[in-house]
């Protein structure tokens, strides 16, 4: 009897739950987009450092890449949230600590994807650009990067989709995003329905990401 009452209550609460989740998704999306906003350009810088011929630049970057890719993101979240407290006696706001951790972590993965793309470019492209008088900057941004973007779309779509799901980790330092709402609601109403609904939310977001990438791939299909 009690179980039935709870279930009935939940069903009537479903629209309300969906609204709350939509609200919490805003935070999830903010983590997603801010991570990309900072992580994508930062990754390019890290990649440049990783490919640098100067050991003093290359070795620290290699160490950075090892640590960021070699330790759990969940641990890095705690680290960037609590570390400032031990240094300056105050923490970053939870949300921004999460953005720092995500941006640095994803920049490491992006950097290696960029590097893979850049190193797959034939030497002849650089040489052709050089004999035509293009500067190094022009060569990279006009000739190399556009071709690299086309080549790295498939691994990038992996990272973007993983990021959508990884945003749920931000809850460990108390960021009120979608997954945190789902688990807390689930505990409160003794039901797994909120978790399933959250799953649907993530799936919808990633469907959009996947669609976006397939559109981008089609758009760049005009050359080989």
């Amino acid at each position: 009897m009690i179980e039935q009452a709870l279930l009935a209550m939940q069903l009537s609460d479903l629209p309300d739950l969906a609204l709350q989740m939509l609200e919490a998704s805003k935070t999830t999306l903010a983590v997603f987009f801010l991570t990309l906003l900072f992580g994508l350009p930062l990754g390019l810088l890290v990649c440049a450092g990783r490919m640098s011929k100067i050991p003093v630049i290359r070795y620290p970057i290699q160490l950075f890449l090892l640590i960021m890719r070699g330790t759990p993101l969940i641990l890095q979240l705690f680290f960037f949230y609590y570390l400032p407290y031990y240094i300056v006696g105050a923490t970053l706001p939870r949300f921004w600590a999460a953005i720092v951790a995500f941006a640095l972590n994803y920049a490491a993965y992006f950097a290696e994807i960029y590097r893979g793309g850049i190193e797959s470019m034939p030497k002849g492209q650089y040489e052709a650009a050089a004999v035509l008088g293009f500067s190094r900057g022009q060569t990279f941004f006009k000739i190399i990067l556009p071709q690299v973007i086309k080549r790295i779309l498939p691994p990038m779509s992996n990272e973007f989709m993983t990021l959508v799901k990884d945003t749920s980790l931000a809850q460990v330092i108390g960021v009120a995003e979608l997954f945190r709402l789902a688990t807390s609601t689930s505990t409160r109403v003794f039901s797994t329905v909120p978790l399933v609904v959250a799953g649907v939310f993530y799936l919808v977001m990633n469907t959009i990401v996947a669609k976006g990438f397939s559109i981008a791939e089609k758009k760049l299909d005009y050359y080989r």
Binding site: A128, K142, Q147
Partner: peptide
């Protein structure tokens, strides 16, 4: 060593425009 992402025309015009 043509630039695959540029049309034939742009392969030819890019350097005159951007370099010369």
């Amino acid at each position: 060593n043509l630039f695959p992402h540029y049309s034939v025309l742009r392969n030819i015009t890019e350097a005159p425009v951007c370099v010369a």
